[in-house]
Design a binder for these strands. Sequence first.
DNA 1: GGTGTTTTGAGGTACGCAACTCATTTTGAG
DNA 2: CTCAAAATGAGTTGCGTACCTCAAAACACC
Lengths: 346, 346
Amino acid sequence: MADTLTATALTLKDIARQAGVSLATVDRVLHNRPGVRPDTVRRVQEAIERNAFQPHVAAAELARGRARRFAFVMPSGPNPFMQQIEAYLGEMSAWLSARRLNVEMIATDVFDPSVLAASLEALSADYDGVAVVALDHPRVRAAVNDLVDAGTRVVTLVSDVPSSRRHHYVGIDNIAAGRTAGALVGRLAGGRSGKVAIVAGSQGLRDHAERIFGFNQVMASEFPELSVLPVLEGRDEDDRSGQLLARLLGRHADIVGLYNVGAGTQGVAKALSDAGRDKVVFVGHDVTALTRRLLLQGVMDAAISQNPGHEARAAVRVLLALARGEPILREQEKIRIDIVMRDNLP
Amino acid sequence: MADTLTATALTLKDIARQAGVSLATVDRVLHNRPGVRPDTVRRVQEAIERNAFQPHVAAAELARGRARRFAFVMPSGPNPFMQQIEAYLGEMSAWLSARRLNVEMIATDVFDPSVLAASLEALSADYDGVAVVALDHPRVRAAVNDLVDAGTRVVTLVSDVPSSRRHHYVGIDNIAAGRTAGALVGRLAGGRSGKVAIVAGSQGLRDHAERIFGFNQVMASEFPELSVLPVLEGRDEDDRSGQLLARLLGRHADIVGLYNVGAGTQGVAKALSDAGRDKVVFVGHDVTALTRRLLLQGVMDAAISQNPGHEARAAVRVLLALARGEPILREQEKIRIDIVMRDNLP
DNA sequence: GGTGTTTTGAGGTACGCAACTCATTTTGAG
DNA sequence: CTCAAAATGAGTTGCGTACCTCAAAACACC
């Protein structure tokens, strides 16, 4: 009836006794310090595993003494999504300081590979961990790898550099996000046939390109009655996105769906309503004050969202776990693709 | 350019010095121990607030000595959702034991108020915290309140007792979940008119009743072309649910939507396919091995899900924060209503 | 002013581990 | 067997807090 998880009340002393060595030797093994015969290492490790011994994290943290420093390298300039991440980190401040963790925000131009790489190099060995919104570029990759080699834990945030040796990626699978958007547009169009518009920031951005890829995949395979128009590149700007879309709407009377891949939402929504095309199925990304309002008004039909609060906290937790040598709770740190509609607005 | 969150490296000694008292007095104030003049209490508290002092959680935990015990009171019998919660707790075992936390699962008949209440009373003061899948009933409420009065932290899990003095509820807003299901059925039906069927476990269950309420709300206000048929009560059993639905499908040729509120999914899906009615929009709850398969096959169109892993971890974190007197990260512990479709299957 | 009570100070111990020193033992090569 | 190098034992100190004791000081009351 009662099933107990965990238990261990063992200490290092117990492990030492079981392995028939002294505390000092256990300490050497535990921290891969030199000067222990391979044979002895094995004996100690066996004792540790046999008892599923876990060092008391509180004791370890206390004994360690110095505080940990993490850096968050984020895009400069006004970006609501990034501002939300900052805000959520701010809400954690009591949590952070109770654990003697220092988190510093470093704003830089993450879209310029050399600037970003330089920012990363400048961090050197000052930090125990770094979370970075990383552009996928050889120079950035090299900078990330250098950090890793220097012993810094590195987590990519929102945007990944898969080819680097970063320890972890905190963000969503953008192809799957695009597929989800496609499925929503297709399903919500309800069998109507016609055209579908795509507004993106730029096809050069990896995340936007991946989303479009996923979107097209689904449209092609599952909704033959819908044909996708060429992508409009609005550079994530309201005005430009709005103008491009307005022109497109004027040319095609049979547009039934719209996928807004990035920002520029304000302009897109305005173009739609100016043209009186509120029947168009409109799917976009992220829950902001604006998209929330559009969803409630019925202008937007669904938003694909990655929870910025979750991403901020996950990045901190992953960096901390890596620094402590604790296992990462993969399931917990995985960022889900949220479908947000009017009735499940968070 | 670099903006630093947190910092504090202050210790109790610093607070004592600033307040002009001894360590012992600070300790008395911090733990509301008696024997301190109100005036002195104020001075100390001011010093604490002025410095935004946070006790070092690791030091506190270590000094405390004894381990913490939490109990999870969960339904007995085979229940995939609950089994998932157990499984996720199991995955945390290293995390738990590194913090010297003991979590015990206690299986009981949570649907019988007196049995559940008795199980809760039996816990008495043995546990620092209790998470319970709580039936909303006066006797259960009394048992919960008794636990709270005895100094145990109580969290309701999945199913709430709002009128009790439990410290926290970890679960979703079921009315909103029902509304979301309604919006999905309505939107995915794509303007077709016809009837909509509802299969529930029982309307006596609070969560099911709330979901149905939310579902009907949306259907009535937003989808006048759809009419909702009387609720079928399948008691969460495959056979019964399947038979009831099969009969209903036979009587109504114009059913275009189906909302499965609880379990019995296997039976529901079978009835649908046996009747060859795979065009029916089918929305259900929870991501299990079965619903995952049905989504991939296109039999189910969407699943409303509350992440069981998140719920398990949130319950533990909340209990721990409550026990330590730490603030709860509300945003983090809030359980979202996930819409899961084929392409964003986790 | 004396009495008893309340408030405060001073100090100690313990928690489990990290990180270090130094002496001692073991090992292997010559 | 000798000797240096490697391996190990034994021990110390400190991290910041909880929790405890005991004595001293301040206070209230008659």
